[in-house]
């Protein structure tokens, strides 16, 4: 009895220790930190500092350059963490027997994966907040509707976590996971309009991109910038992708 109570009482501590440890390990990977946190924030600040980026443009559907690229930068950061980076880390833990070893402790290996998701989701939300707030301090406008914007962050995050989980589950090795994740991330970025803003895409291209999570997610953000409710079609697309990739992840997942 005592032993059981002790174990349960100490449950939160192992997960906290894991989150702290994972954060420390991330800080030892400067390349990751630069791409995930510093590059998007720097791009955001540069955009915000150029007065021309604040002018509403006819070509961008009445949004300014900054208003068009803020959603892209948020999607860039979230997808980089959840689809490109995390699957490689988690698959590496599987490949090196770290998950298997945790099976031999009182702590489940699921706690380690959970700790990583919590850490990176937290970083993703914090980075999104910085991406919005810093330009506002520099004199830009807030998104038209901050609540719809926050919802877009959460929905995109959940959908990218499911995508990343399916990448991790399907990939045989860590290198493979990183490779698949990188390709998937580039597709997400393209569909979100990183290279060609959504408003200037030809109709057929926009239609295809709308069916990709990146394109659907950018729809949520752009509506939020315009103070409009999320488009139902985009929500549906994200829900389907989340369900499908979540199911694939659960069905094909291996601890070793």
């Amino acid at each position: 009895m005592t032993a059981i109570r002790q174990t349960q009482a100490s449950r939160p501590a192992p997960v906290r220790a894991m989150i702290r440890n994972e954060a420390r390990l991330l800080m030892r990977e400067p390349a990751m930190v630069i791409w995930m946190l510093i590059v998007p924030v720097a791009a955001d600040i540069v955009l915000a500092l150029l007065p021309a980026t604040r002018t509403p443009l006819q070509a961008f559907g009445g949004l300014s350059v900054w208003q068009t690229y803020l959603p892209v930068l948020v999607i860039f950061t979230l997808s980089l963490m959840m689809v490109q980076l995390l699957p490689g880390i988690a698959a590496g833990y599987r490949e090196n027997g770290i998950l298997k070893r945790l099976h031999a402790t009182p702590v489940s290996p699921a706690a380690l994966l959970g700790a990583d998701v919590v850490l990176y989701a937290g970083l993703g939300i914090a980075a999104s907040a910085v991406l919005v707030v810093v330009p506002v301090i520099l004199g830009n406008e807030l998104p038209g509707n901050a609540w719809w914007f926050a919802l877009a962050v959460v929905v995109s995050l959940v959908s990218f976590i499911a995508l990343g989980a399916s990448v991790m589950a399907l990939a045989p090795t860590a290198r493979f996971a990183t490779g698949i994740g990188t390709v998937a991330t580039f597709i997400l970025w393209f569909s979100a309009g990183l290279w060609l803003p959504r408003t200037v895409m030809p109709g057929w291209m926009a239609t295809i991109c709308d069916a990709v999570p990146g394109g659907a997610a950018v729809g949520l953000f752009t509506n939020a910038m315009r103070d409009q409710a999320p488009p139902w079609r985009a929500l549906l697309v994200l829900a389907i992708w989340t369900l499908v990739s979540g199911t694939v992840a659960v069905r094909t997942f291996r601890w070793e």
């Binding site: 100490s10 220790a17 390990l25 990977e29 770290i98 031999a104």
Partner: peptide
């Protein structure tokens, strides 16, 4: 202890021990 089980390459010895110590009462 399991055969062929590694640790993350950038964790230090003391950090690894402290992490695993946190798992036990």
């Amino acid at each position: 202890q399991l055969q062929d089980s590694r640790m993350p390459s950038k964790i230090t010895v003391a950090e690894a021990l402290d992490l695993y110590r946190a798992f036990y009462p």
